[in-house]
Structures are given as C-alpha cells and as structure tokens.
Amino acid sequence: MAKTMQNKGSDKLKDLTDSVQGSQAWNSIFRPGSIFRKGYTDSPRNRSYVIMNSVLYHLHPVKVKRHAVKVSYTLCLGGLSFFLFILLTVTGIFLMFFYRPTAAQAWNDIYTLQTSVTFGLLVRNMHRWSAHLMVLSVFLHMARVFYHGAYKPPREFNWVIGIVLLLLTLLLSFTGYLLPWDQLALWAVTVGTNMMGYTPVFGNQVRFVLLGGSEIGTDTLLRWYVLHVLMLPFVIVIFMAIHFWRVRKDGGISGPL
C-alpha cells in the first residue's frame, strides 16, 4: 500500500541515494557501522562499530558498566573538564589571531578585540568564563573521585596524574591571567608570584626565571604567553592522554559503591 502512495519523484530520490551510498567514494569515507552507510540498522554489531570505527568515540570502550552511565554517579565532571579544555583551545586560537604579547601592545590588542572585532568580546568572555569553570570542574571532579574512593587500587597512579592535571589547570589559568595586561592582571600576578618567592632555598631563583627578571615586565608577558599557549597545553595534553588511557586500563570507572 505504501508503495502505491509513493510518487515518481521520491522513487528517483531513492535511486539517487542508493547510487551515492553504493559508490566506492562514499564507502571509503564512512567506515562500517556509520549511520550514513547503506542499510544501517540499530544492531549490537553496529553499536560496537560506531565506537570502534570513530577516532573520537574510541576513547570509550564499546560497553561500560551499567552504573557508569548514571549521571548521578559521575556528574559528568571529568568529561566536562575535558570538554571545557576543548572549548578553551578553540576560543584561545581565535584570540591568538588578535593578540601580541608585548607590554606596549597587549592591552590595546584586547581593547581593539572587544570593540572592533566581530564576536571578539563574546569569544573573550567565553574564554575567560570557561577557564574559571574548568578550574571549578576539575576541583569538583577530584572531590567526586575521592568521595567514591575511586583512588584506591588499581587506580592509585591515575589519581596522582589527576592531581598533576589539577596543578597544570591552575598554572594554565594563572598564566592566562596576566595576558590582558591590565591593572587586575598585573597585580594579581604580582601577589601570586610574590608567594612563590617565599619558597625556601631557591625561591628567588624560581621567581626570577618565571618573571624573566626581578620585576614583572614585557619579558614576563612573553614568557607567560608561551607557557600559556604552547608549553602548558602541550604538557597537559600528554597527561590527559595518560589519564584517559589509565581509566581504560584500570578497568573502566570505579564502582558501583
């Protein structure tokens, strides 16, 4: 009956879809299990393929323990920290197009970005608020993991990596804090680096290396810029890779309680 209802046009469309989906080019792009493949059905086999044949999704195993998908167990905090990191990377790359890390130009560049660049203000706002949010979500993720006792064997070392990630997140946020080169940035960083100067034995040396001098200046700006956009992201990505890999190797997420 449905057949008779169809008109010629939809038949042609179906033929076209079939020929496109049957072509070699199409099948070379979409791997088995892709929902764009011909004859996709919701079968256990295809559900597995969706994960295995996707470069992004295969961070996940094909199956997880039933309690692990409950939002009330993880509160999505680890995943959201990672997502915020991606969001920060994307918005940060946008900001890099309009910013020069010198004392003479930095503030003006930010000001121009806010006033003359399309979506400049919005993207800067997003970058800043996601940064604060990421510090918060990483911290809460740590609390969640502790309260579930998820740092216990075999996950001890992944907890240690998690603490390193927390420190790196704080450092990323702190190095970014200086970059607008306004009064808030300068004095917040002054207070922060003065605290580092109290480190016994080599405190002043640490401070000197970080500031690129004994006072905060244009050298500090360049140094912290490179730390913020290149070195610390590079390091944190390596640690994140180990963190995610260990979650899998240690038998998926912990629990149930």
């Binding site: 559900r47 994960i51 199956k63 997880v64 323990k65 039933r66 998908v69």
Partner: peptide
Amino acid sequence: DKVHVWPHLLSI
C-alpha cells in the same frame, strides 16, 4: 551488567 556506550553514554 554492561550497556553499549552508543547510544547510552554518548547521548548523555
């Protein structure tokens, strides 16, 4: 007791 990541976890 396990569930498929797709769709159960990915959709969340």
